[in-house]
Design a protein around this nucleic acid. Structure first.
Length: 293
DNA sequence: GAACAGCACTACAAAATACA
DNA sequence: TGTATTTTGTAGTGCTGTTC
């Protein structure tokens, strides 16, 4: 086979019947196309084009070669277009449930409006995404700083926490200061954030208290239970702004705890230049800037 | 469109270095 | 000590810009 660059130049000139137009299409100079055709003609041992004043025509040899070459490039072109549409057309995202339900569900529509050419396949689960095993393009994870090798992360939101409850719960248990929570039921009482928050407030006797056995593994479930007046839960208030604004949930104390955990957008380093990943990264960093403010 | 000079890039081999 | 990886130097290739 002759060099593919030469064959590609021949295909473009045969289609355009112009060295100049072929060069513009290929992103090369006219001189380079001329050089590639000359190489091909030397290799074949015959002229492929008849040069005329201000125009070129396929020679007899060129006419014999052109149909097969054009058809072959057509097949290649279609194949690449279809592959590109398949690869770039669908963005697969795996998110933690809390972020998925509290932020994504409300905002992913805006991404679809801004980028109608990219379909989104969205899943949520409690465990972080594992790019070695999972078939997802990007993930939303909780991270304490360490990321797997070869994975890039962008901070979306600090997972700060504070006790959240219903207004009715506050009145029933007469919650006026942090210490009052010690005699009130907690949702997921073994949640380490509870002990950390109390310690931050100068209350060290929480871990000694044995209360309740129910543990809910997502903030969404804990917030639902708290909203129903079943107890107080340690929640990231930025993710429950609407519930707090409507009064369904109440944050009685302004102090926020933080153990270094952040919600992060992650993806393998090797995918950083994929169009759909780039577009999504730019969109979500902009869209979540309010949460970080 | 063709020809030519000059430049940039690439491929390859050899040498140097790191590591088990 | 053998193998893998990285660095360096060089020759060849292909491109651009210019001129005809």
């Amino acid at each position: 086979m002759p060099p593919l660059t030469s064959v590609r130049a021949f295909e473009a000139v045969a289609r355009q019947l112009s060295f100049t137009r072929a060069a513009a299409e290929l992103g090369m100079s006219q001189a380079a196309v001329s050089y590639q055709i000359k190489l091909l003609e030397e290799r074949i041992g015959a002229a492929l084009f008849v040069r005329k004043a201000r125009q070129v025509e396929l020679s007899e040899v060129g006419q014999r070669l052109a149909p097969d070459v054009l058809q072959a490039f057509d097949i290649l072109r279609n194949s690449f277009v279809q592959t590109h549409q398949h690869v770039s057309g669908t963005l697969a995202i795996l998110s933690l449930p809390t972020f998925a339900t509290r932020w994504f569900a409300a905002n992913i529509g805006l991404f679809q409006v801004a980028h109608p050419d990219i379909a989104v396949r969205f899943n949520s689960r409690v465990e972080n995404v594992d790019f070695q095993k999972d078939m997802f393009d990007v993930g939303i994870i909780a991270s304490w700083g360490e990321l797997p090798e070869g994975v890039v992360g962008h901070e979306l939101l600090r997972a700060e926490f504070t006790p959240i409850m219903s207004g009715d719960f506050i009145e029933r248990h007469r919650i006026r200061e942090p210490r009052d929570l010690l005699r009130a039921p907690a949702i997921s009482p073994s949640d380490q954030w509870i002990g950390q928050w109390f310690a931050m407030m100068g209350i060290d006797d929480y871990p000694a208290m044995a209360r309740g056995v129910v543990t809910l593994d997502t903030q969404v479930l804990e917030a639902a239970a708290a909203g129903a007046g079943r107890g107080f839960a340690m929640i990231t208030p930025a993710l429950f702004r609407d519930d707090l604004a409507s009064g369904r949930l109440v944050q009685p104390f302004p102090e926020l705890g933080w153990d270094g955990c952040t919600y992060q957008l992650v993806y393998p380093q090797s995918r950083r230049n994929w169009t759909k990943v780039k577009v999504f990264r730019e969109w979500i960093l902009e869209a979540t800037s309010v949460l970080r403010a």
